[in-house]
Design a binder for these strands. Structure first.
Length: 154
DNA sequence: GCCAACGTTGGC
DNA sequence: GCCAACGTTGGC
């Protein structure tokens, strides 16, 4: 099993929104590296830290789980969508996604500040300056430690 | 609101 | 295929 960190702007879609809908297609990812993670590396059942970006404060607010198999992001073919990609053809879709389901909201959110303050968690990609990737792999030990900081048992 | 970092675009 | 210009991300 692989572990991940997925970023979302809470003004757009927060961990509370995920809890409400319980399952959500992770649409709108338009970065090849992030796409490849969803397309090739994520397996149903993988756990992901749910990170709030552009938030006050930014940090990990809960956990989500990959559910089902990857499939083409429907928004790429939707001319009305802000994620529409005219260059992508249905016979060879450019953008793929997976669904995530809600697992847990942390009793204690783990802020970016506290991640950076920890010598171990400071190594996480999300702590590195200039890392804008919206999906990153997470070391299993880092994953466990973040959950521990969040007051939640996997 | 600022701006550093980085991905993408497009002229050549 | 290079690289400058531009757009976006996202912390601060």
């Amino acid at each position: 099993m692989h572990h991940w960190l997925i970023k979302s702007e809470p003004d757009v879609f927060s961990i509370d929104d995920l809890a409400r809908v319980s399952r959500e297609p992770w649409s709108g990812v338009r970065n090849y590296q992030a796409r490849n993670f969803m397309w090739k590396d994520m397996k149903s059942g993988d756990l992901a830290l749910f990170y709030h970006s552009n938030a006050k404060p930014p940090g990990v607010f809960g956990v989500a789980r990959v559910v089902g198999e990857p499939y083409p992001d429907p928004t790429q073919f939707d001319a009305a969508s802000e994620y529409h990609d005219a260059k992508s053809k249905p016979e060879s879709p450019r953008w793929w996604l997976v669904d995530f389901e809600f697992v847990a909201t942390f009793p204690t959110p783990v802020t970016l500040e506290s991640l950076k303050a920890d010598p171990v968690l400071g190594e996480m990609m999300v702590c590195q300056r200039g890392t804008r990737l919206s999906i990153t792999p997470v070391d299993p030990l880092h994953f466990k430690r973040v959950c521990k900081f969040g007051g939640w048992k996997p």
